[in-house]
Amino acid sequence: MSPDIMQEEYEIRLVQYLLANRFLRQSNGKLVTSRTIADDTIGFETEDSLCREWLLSIYESYSFYEGFDTMEDCIHFIESSYYDNHLYRIVQFSTMFYAIIYENTQYQQVIGKEIAYFTRNNLFLCTKRPPSNLTFKERIKMPPIPLIYYELHAFDPHMKVFKLDSDTSDSFQEVPILDAIEYAVLLGVTFKDIWYSCDTPTQLLIIALF
């Protein structure tokens, strides 16, 4: 599945979105970012060249796989799966539908049309469909890193999240995406081809944003 937006248009849209959400700001015509990461005492301000290098890398860091063609197909999978309906959210992204479970870092699933990701023993694994014996583990639910949501939003500003109304009905309702941002972020993680090593300037930028 190819993105519906060319790289230059994507980068313009992303910069506008990050500026509007104050992840980036302009200073004397240059792009910079300053974000507090521990109380009010630690901050980091990038130089323009670092911001632009990072922004230019994002478009090609994504490789998309197909979701279900219709909401009905996605719901049919959920109802036929081994896991309770209420655990799932459906993310509509670029006309495709993905079934997602996000309880904590140890209990996650992302299911597309022909491929699925799931967590087991601290690993994020890929297969055609998740196994039937995954068990819930009590863990603190960590807050998501929202930047990946903003990156996805620049690809598809109309992305939506839905949940089933009950375990016995195929009806569904839309959820405010900012109330379910972790599901969009988890989907974005499975699309990512490129990760940042911890000793690069780009990683410093990402740390600074959160």
Rank of each mutant, 00 (worst) to 15 (best):
residue 103 E to I: 06
residue 154 A to K: 00
residue 133 N to L: 03
residue 149 Y to Q: 02
residue 177 I to M: 11
residue 72 E to D: 15
residue 108 Q to M: 13
residue 135 T to M: 15
residue 14 L to H: 02
residue 204 L to Y: 04
residue 206 I to D: 09
residue 54 W to Y: 14
residue 102 Y to I: 06
residue 26 Q to V: 12
residue 149 Y to M: 09
residue 99 A to R: 00
residue 1 M to C: 05
residue 42 I to G: 06
residue 92 Q to G: 01
residue 5 I to N: 01
residue 131 P to V: 12
residue 49 S to L: 10
residue 59 Y to I: 05
residue 204 L to E: 08
residue 163 K to L: 13
residue 28 N to W: 02
residue 4 D to N: 11
residue 145 I to F: 08
residue 150 Y to R: 03
residue 98 Y to C: 13
residue 153 H to M: 01
residue 19 L to P: 11
residue 16 Q to L: 12
residue 116 A to F: 07
residue 206 I to L: 13
residue 55 L to S: 13
residue 165 D to M: 15
residue 156 D to R: 00
residue 70 T to K: 07
residue 29 G to D: 10
residue 41 T to Q: 08
residue 32 V to I: 06
residue 23 F to C: 15
residue 189 V to T: 07
residue 69 D to Y: 03
residue 180 A to I: 10
residue 166 S to P: 01
residue 2 S to N: 08
residue 76 H to L: 12
residue 76 H to K: 09
residue 113 K to Y: 15
residue 186 L to Y: 00
residue 56 L to I: 11
residue 197 S to M: 10
residue 92 Q to R: 01
residue 193 D to M: 11
residue 138 E to M: 13
residue 73 D to W: 02
residue 43 G to T: 07
residue 159 M to N: 00
residue 24 L to G: 15
residue 43 G to I: 05
residue 136 F to E: 14
residue 111 I to K: 04
residue 104 N to I: 00
residue 55 L to D: 15
residue 191 F to H: 04
residue 101 I to H: 02
residue 24 L to Q: 14
residue 190 T to W: 13
residue 88 Y to F: 04
residue 77 F to C: 12
residue 123 L to C: 14
residue 125 L to A: 14
residue 195 W to S: 15
residue 73 D to A: 13
residue 172 F to R: 02
residue 29 G to L: 08
residue 178 L to C: 12
residue 86 H to T: 14
residue 26 Q to G: 12
residue 114 E to S: 15
residue 81 S to D: 12
residue 199 D to C: 07
residue 61 S to D: 07
residue 25 R to K: 11
residue 169 S to F: 08
residue 86 H to I: 10
residue 184 A to I: 06
residue 71 M to F: 09
residue 186 L to E: 05
residue 3 P to E: 03
residue 11 E to R: 00
residue 184 A to Y: 05
residue 110 V to T: 15
residue 116 A to M: 10
residue 174 E to D: 04
residue 47 E to Y: 03
residue 123 L to Y: 14
residue 199 D to G: 05
residue 200 T to M: 01
residue 43 G to Y: 04
residue 74 C to H: 09
residue 184 A to L: 10
residue 165 D to F: 03
residue 204 L to V: 05
residue 94 S to T: 03
residue 116 A to S: 15
residue 75 I to W: 09
residue 47 E to P: 02
residue 202 T to R: 01
residue 147 L to G: 10
residue 183 Y to F: 09
residue 36 T to R: 00
residue 45 E to T: 10
residue 81 S to L: 04
residue 185 V to H: 01
residue 158 H to E: 07
residue 62 Y to K: 00
residue 202 T to W: 02
residue 75 I to E: 11
residue 18 L to Q: 01
residue 161 V to R: 01
residue 161 V to W: 03
residue 198 C to M: 07
residue 28 N to K: 11
residue 44 F to S: 03
residue 26 Q to H: 11
residue 92 Q to E: 04
residue 169 S to T: 07
residue 199 D to L: 01
residue 20 A to W: 07
residue 35 R to L: 08
residue 57 S to I: 08
residue 177 I to E: 15
residue 66 E to P: 01
residue 101 I to L: 04
residue 155 F to H: 00
residue 99 A to Y: 02
residue 97 F to K: 06
residue 17 Y to E: 10
residue 190 T to A: 13
residue 113 K to D: 14
residue 182 E to D: 09
residue 54 W to G: 12
residue 66 E to L: 07
residue 5 I to A: 03
residue 13 R to S: 11
residue 208 A to Y: 04
residue 35 R to I: 09
residue 34 S to W: 01
residue 52 R to T: 12
residue 85 N to F: 01
residue 122 N to R: 10
residue 184 A to T: 10
residue 83 Y to P: 07
residue 144 P to Q: 12
residue 21 N to Q: 13
residue 74 C to I: 10
